[in-house]
Structures are given as C-alpha cells and as structure tokens.
Design a binder for these strands. Structure first.
Lengths: 148, 148
DNA sequence: CGGTATCCTATAAGATACTG
DNA sequence: CAGTATCTTATAGGATACCG
C-alpha cells in the first residue's frame, strides 16, 4: 500500500470502533459467534460483570448486530435469547481474524484453547485477505484507490 | 457453530484485545497498514493527541507489531520511522475485516472514504472466512473442535 | 433467570505547554 | 520533527446489593 495523506475523519474503521470497538463488545460478539445466546452465559463466559453485560448487549441490539427474542424450549418456561442478525453475522471475519492473530502471536503455553474447523471438511477456519476476483492479496500487493 | 460451555479465561482473542484492542492502537495499525511511517503523520491522520500517539506507538513496538528505525532520505536529515514487523503484517486481516464491516454497516453518506484494491487486478480487497483447504466457510458451517 | 441501581476505581484520551 | 510533562475529563469496567 502507498501512504495517502490527510486526516481520516470519516474512516469507517473509526466509526466501527466507536460502535463496537470496546473489549467488552468484542468479547460478547466472540461468544455470539460461538453460539452463546443467554444472558447468564454471556456474562460467565466473557468474565464480564452483569451490569456491563447488560449495557453492552443492549448496545449491540441497538447497533443492529444482535436481536433479542423470547423463546421456549419444550416443557420449559419462556426465556430470552440474543442472536446474531445478518449484520452480526457479517462481523465473523473480524472475530476470525482476531482469533487467528491471537493464536499466532498472543498464544498461551499449550496452544490455543479454542479451535474452529470447517464443518464440511474439518480443516481449520481462518480469515484471508483476497480481492473480489478471488486472488490472495499478500501484504504490499494492495493499493489505496480512493480517498475522499 | 455450536455453543460450548465454560469460561474462556485464556482465549487468545481476549489476550489480543488486551494487547492491541484499544481504539487508538487499532487506528494506528490502520495507518501503518496504509503506509504511514512518521510520528507526526500518525498523530494527524488518526486524530490522536501527541501524548497518546507516543504512548501507543511505544506499546506497539514493545508488542512486536511495529519496529522503529532511523532513516535518511537523500539530502535530508535523519528521521524516525515506524514500520510493520511480520507480526504487524499478520494483523492486516483484522484491519481489512474491520474496514469491510464498516463500509457495509457503519458507512457515511457518499460511500466509504477509503477504498483498497488488489495491485494485480484492481478488484476490491476483502477479508474472507475460509478453511485451510480453501473452501469458503459461511456462517453456521464451522464447528468448535477443541476447547481447553 | 435476567436483569437494574448505585457506587467505586482504573484507564483511555485530550488540552496545553514545553524540550532536544 | 519527534516527542515529554502535567493536568483534566470521559468512559470502561467491577463490586455489591437488590428486583420481578
């Protein structure tokens, strides 16, 4: 990439970070990606306090990444659940890329505690940088084409 | 994905967020990915204050994502520069995925202010979730295979 | 179970002024 | 140009107690 000048006031990365860039939001989105749906599970599995869990889940619903709904398992009483919306599912590349970098560079002794595989073939799931024509794009082979 | 239980104390995503998960760190990594190398440019283009820019650049050097070096342009005096290390280059999928989500869901009127294209063919650069066998992995077609 | 209310601390981040 | 020093504010986040 080259180095275009100018202040990036309206960069969509900055807007994304303002919306869902806190540690707590990203941990909750990680959990949602792993299939967690209930309030108490979100709180325990992320290690977040209940007030923070409540505040951030509400923000993620407002931001359109999660949807809240009642559901009832057979023979059980009504419970609440939080599920990824289409916009929330679109966030999976971010979560995957974070896990991939962490596994490679922020690893704990004994290897990564979570592994994700393709259901079809069993191979590890990763985030790849490609162009829309399908070519892999290694670092240095991309250019900024437009800067407003 | 299914929903495995248990607290994820040692999740590498959490470790990654603790290391480089602040808004300021991620904005600086965005700039480094766009080719920015000099202190004053990092500060102006991210909109961060100079003290915050200095603190976070030092953290990113300590964390191994940036390397600092002197350099001299022909006929100029010695300057400092910050460049992505191999670990920093490995962070590009995260930045790409954040930009992609922001362009789609946190967009500003008039379209994204920055566009990145493949140098080889001109097509847009995106982050894709795939398995290491090369298959695209849409949401719901991955499974957690290991949880320690 | 699924939260809310209240209070507290730590840190993210900016403003301003200054230095080699 | 590339920072540092100092101070202040805003927010992230936890602890504890409580509610329908």
């Amino acid at each position: 990439m080259d180095a275009p000048t100018g202040v990036r006031e309206h960069c969509t990365i900055a807007a994304t970070l303002d919306l869902v860039g806190s540690r707590s939001s990203l941990l909750l989105l990680r959990e949602a990606a792993l299939g967690t749906r209930r309030f108490a599970d979100f709180a325990v599995r992320t290690g977040l306090s209940e007030p923070m869990t409540a505040r951030r889940l509400a923000e993620l619903v407002d931001a359109g990444l999660l949807a809240r709904a009642d559901y009832r398992e057979p023979g059980q009483r009504v419970r609440q659940e939080y599920r990824l919306t289409p916009a929330g599912l679109d966030f999976l590349p971010v979560i995957t890329a974070l896990r991939q970098w962490g596994d490679a560079h922020a690893g704990v002794p004994g290897g990564p505690p979570i592994a994700v595989a393709h259901a079809g073939c069993g191979a590890e799931v990763v985030a790849e940088v490609r162009c829309t024509h399908g070519h892999p794009v290694p670092p240095g082979e991309s250019v900024v084409t437009h800067l407003r």
